[in-house]
Write a protein that binds this DNA or RNA. Structure first.
Lengths: 206, 206
DNA sequence: AAGTTAACGGTACTGTTGTTCCGTTAGTAT
DNA sequence: ATACTAACGGAACAACAGTACCGTTAACTT
């Protein structure tokens, strides 16, 4: 796919090119949420986006590459963070947000598909890691504030704490099939807060 | 694929049929670990297993179905549980086992592929949930013993605690790409123990 | 506002994945 | 031992995902 020259979409990024990208990414998201990533046919995506099949194959070429682009698009759409004044309150708000996203039929299926695609291709995996680095980074300040307030020991790794909130929810979604309700979210937040207070997420050495 | 009659492998489960199943499942595991689940070609599996392509398509038919059978096979191979006498020791032993498995090149890739396949097919997802229910159940007794010793509050859900150990490790493997080293395992175990001691995994109501 | 060419889109093609057909092998029953 | 048939295996076939070609559209330049 990547030929000698530059790939399409860079030298002339104006009107039509951008419209095509939007339509294709939206169609890809819909198709992924409906059928999952293995059943994703680029011809079908082209049809949904009302775009030539050739265009999709030329600009993206494979499912993982298309998914990686979708992830970059998703990372750009940042969500507002709520501030409650306490660590547990903030982490619970985050946990509820994640839980509601994953429990939602379309969004949950989309996340599953995207994560599955990342297991098949290194570049897609990098895009997924970048996506989570972005999302986790958006919530890290609430941990930093907790350190400043004296709720947490100094040296606590904010990213580590935020990741600890999401982990059990994703583990349920992907592995065990456990319930993804508000109670699960609250438990995840409380557990992360307890571990952080116990100093288990203090950076050692570096 | 599932025709009116019975599917192959049930009415005559003796020698050859069993040998074919073993060879195909081993070949499927190898192929999954090498290429990931989207690049899995049943014809290639048949070649590796030195078995007719027709046989693989007749008995399994699709990638998710084959993966589901592989999962049943994996669940049967149970691992011995080490007992250290303390909750933290036992959970750390479990965390190290999971961490080493996921960090191993072949095993880690295989788990990724299997989880990806489960996102594409409901029956495969059920097989995956059953696999984790089995594995988690094998380690639940160490939590029960901790309750008996008085280390944990009565009513603590053993499965919940064991799942809490694995969650951050799988989250690193699948989503964030975080390090999967012994330190990560120890942190996961310590965090789960802290949350359990704080009574966060006590069954409420039911 | 006229020209240049990046990027799009339809159609015809190719290669691989999955199916069908039928003959052969080997478990199981008597 | 012999008969019966479930399950396997090879080869020819069909369908569809992905590619190549080339004419058309529209973004950017001067």
């Amino acid at each position: 796919m990547a030929l000698g020259g530059v790939e399409p979409g860079h030298t002339r990024p104006g009107g039509r090119t951008a419209r095509v990208r939007d339509a294709v990414l939206r169609a890809a998201g819909d198709a992924l949420a409906e059928h999952g990533m293995d059943a994703l046919d680029l011809g079908d995506v082209a049809r949904r986006a009302q775009v030539g099949k050739t265009t999709v194959y030329r600009r993206w070429g494979t499912v993982p590459i298309l998914v990686a682009d979708l992830l970059r698009d998703m990372a750009d759409q940042s969500l507002p963070r709520t501030e409650t004044g306490s660590l547990l309150g903030d982490l619970t708000a985050n946990a509820r947000l994640v839980q509601e996203t994953l429990a939602d039929a379309r969004q949950g299926a989309l996340f599953k598909a995207v994560i599955a695609a990342a297991t098949c291709d290194a570049a897609t995996a990098r895009a997924l890691h970048a996506f989570y680095a972005t999302r986790v980074g958006e919530w890290a300040p609430c941990v930093e504030q907790a350190v400043d307030r004296g709720e947490l020991p100094p040296g606590t790794d904010p990213h580590e704490v935020v990741r600890a909130v999401s982990a059990p929810l994703y583990y349920s979604l992907l592995c065990t099939g456990g319930a993804l309700d508000a109670a699960a979210a609250d438990r995840a937040a409380a557990a992360a807060a307890a571990a952080a207070r116990a100093g288990l997420h203090v950076r050692s050495g570096d």
